[in-house]
Design a protein around this nucleic acid. Structure first.
Length: 534
DNA sequence: TTCGGGTCTC
């Protein structure tokens, strides 16, 4: 028997109704899983109901993979999608941005246009943020032009990203023009305005912008503090910090970090103690800065306490924090502890290896430093210019001239790394200390830059060590031309004059010291802090 | 369903 016509209609209508409801439900459920970080559950739902999927389901799941850093899974899904919209492309772009892969972001953007998807404001916001601080940042003004051609709005997302783009390019006018052209502003572009002014050293403009803000949030205060610190205005930063009614972990950390950057290590540690007595709890960022402060004043006692504190708080030891700890031990004189931390790390990156190599070098264990360098290369980590600074200075302290020479020559030949001023000054130091002063002089002659104070200082130091009068005077003269009133110059020169029996020279130097009111430079050591730690 | 601004290691 056939169903009456009206009933059949009803059945079809209700099945359609169920169909749309279920797609809505499915997407909500997938989104809930993704928000809770359960991508696998989201995937199960996605696989279970293939007929209910629409583009939103695909996009949501792709976003789940992107957010959990499973880019290859995201890419697989993206390739299988029957129909991609701007959201799909934007999601992939944000994944490449988070993975710091501007090439891929660029490539996908071109594909997006080729395949006829229309980019929107967010596409450009994400793309610009992917290009920030990379070689691709030269494309940002072109993207800006494209935004204008397409007639897109300069909304708060796109506007803030563009402002940051121009800040990165050092384009003060472009940055300011974009701010003025943002149609409806909220607190974020105003914060970026302060950030930019501070970056360009326009402190009073930044202050004015801060004072005139219609509303402020935690970011505004931290940006201001950071800006003052960047411009070495420590006192101004402190005034702002003290004015803050609700200090959060970021503002505390920014303040400590600033003290460390201005080499005010004790102030940083004092602030840490204050923070521990406040309701705010430190995080891994805080501890990185505090450990840096411990290294700065070579206080193993404090360093040990901070390490214990990290364990007590149960802060997860990621690569960055573990590296900070090992670096602290290396700089505070406990190289064994540094190596234990290094060995215990399940993932090590280039910075971790550089840290341990630097630690061994600093302790005069040049062989160990070179061993670790070779072990690093074997582990498929490609050395950078800092690896070589550490390796070469290890050779300097270990007096390993031949090894140092070999490593220096391998830099460009093997790894394509151009030697910088620091590498050349290591070589001058290396030859100089070994008494090969002609070779040291030769390095200065062949280096492709105008030698700086450190290079001449290395040569002068070597001349002091080997009582070389003529070359010592040359080096001292060059240093005085570059930087007046350098106390070490007088100390070493008077030693050279004394040992060469040039009494007139000693007398003249005495007068010069009086004239410049130069004092013998103070020396520092971590030895005094060791016994307390044992 | 994609979303901007503040603190991290050599």
């Amino acid at each position: 028997m056939r169903l009456p016509r009206t009933l059949a209609h009803l059945a079809r209508a209700s099945s359609r109704r169920i169909y749309t409801l279920s797609t809505f439900d499915l997407n909500h459920k997938i989104n809930d899983c993704v928000r809770n970080g359960n991508v696998n559950d989201a995937r199960k739902l996605f696989d279970e109901y293939p007929h209910w999927r629409n583009t939103v389901s695909w996009n949501t799941l792709i976003n789940g993979y992107v957010k959990t850093r499973q880019l290859s899974e995201a890419q697989k899904l993206f390739d299988q999608m029957p129909k991609r919209d701007a959201v799909s492309w934007n999601t992939m772009l944000s994944g490449f941005r988070d993975a710091q892969n501007p090439q891929k972001a660029h490539q996908y953007f071109l594909q997006m246009i080729e395949r006829g998807s229309m980019p929107d404001e967010l596409t450009f916001a994400v793309l610009i943020s992917a290009f920030l601080d990379t070689d691709f940042n030269v494309l940002i003004p072109q993207l800006h032009g494209l935004v204008m051609c397409l007639g897109l709005d300069l909304n708060i997302y796109l506007g803030s990203a563009l402002m940051r783009g121009y800040i990165g390019l050092g384009d003060r006018l472009g940055f300011r023009r974009v701010f003025d052209e943002i149609l409806v502003k909220d607190v974020v572009p105003c914060n970026v305005l302060i950030l930019g002014y501070m970056e360009f050293g326009l402190i009073s403009a930044a202050k004015k912008a801060f004072d005139e803000m219609p509303e402020r949030n935690a970011h505004s205060w931290s940006i201001l503090i950071n800006g003052f610190m960047k411009n070495k205005e420590v006192n101004e930063a402190r005034v702002v910090f003290d004015r803050m009614s609700e200090k959060d972990v970021v503002s505390w950390t920014a303040m400590m970090r600033g003290f460390v950057q201005c080499e005010k290590f004790m102030e940083a540690l004092d602030l840490f103690v204050l923070m521990m007595n406040s309701p705010t709890r430190p995080n891994n960022y805080t501890f990185s800065s505090v450990l840096d402060a411990c290294s700065g004043c070579s206080s193993l006692v404090m360093g040990n306490q901070v390490h214990a504190c990290i364990l007590k708080f149960g802060i997860p030891l990621d690569v960055v924090l573990a590296t900070s700890i090992l670096d602290m031990y290396g700089k505070c004189g406990d190289i064994d502890a540094a190596f234990r931390v290094f060995q215990s790390m399940s993932t090590k990156n280039l910075v971790s290896w550089n840290s341990i190599i630097g630690g061994y070098g600093r302790h005069g264990l040049a062989y160990r430093a070179l061993e670790e360098f070779d072990r690093m290369v074997k582990n498929n980590i490609i050395p950078d210019e800092i690896s070589f600074i550490n390796v070469l200075s290890a050779c300097v302290h270990g007096g390993m001239v031949k090894e140092g020479e070999e490593r220096f020559n391998s830099m460009e030949a093997k790894y394509g790394i151009k030697a910088e001023m620091e590498h050349y000054s290591c070589m001058v130091d290396l030859y100089g200390r070994a008494g090969q002063l002609e070779k040291a002089e030769e390095i200065i002659k062949v280096m492709p830059f105008e030698p700086d104070v450190i290079v001449w200082g290395a040569l002068l130091g070597a001349c002091g060590l080997h009582s070389c009068l003529e070359l010592g005077e040359t080096a001292a003269n060059r240093i005085c031309k570059l930087e007046k009133d350098h106390p070490v110059v007088y100390t070493i020169l008077s030693k050279i004059y004394g040992e060469n029996g040039v009494r007139g020279g000693v007398f003249q130097l005495g007068k010069m010291i009086q004239k410049w009111r130069a004092r013998k430079q103070k020396a520092g050591s971590w030895i005094e802090s060791c016994p307390a730690a044992i």
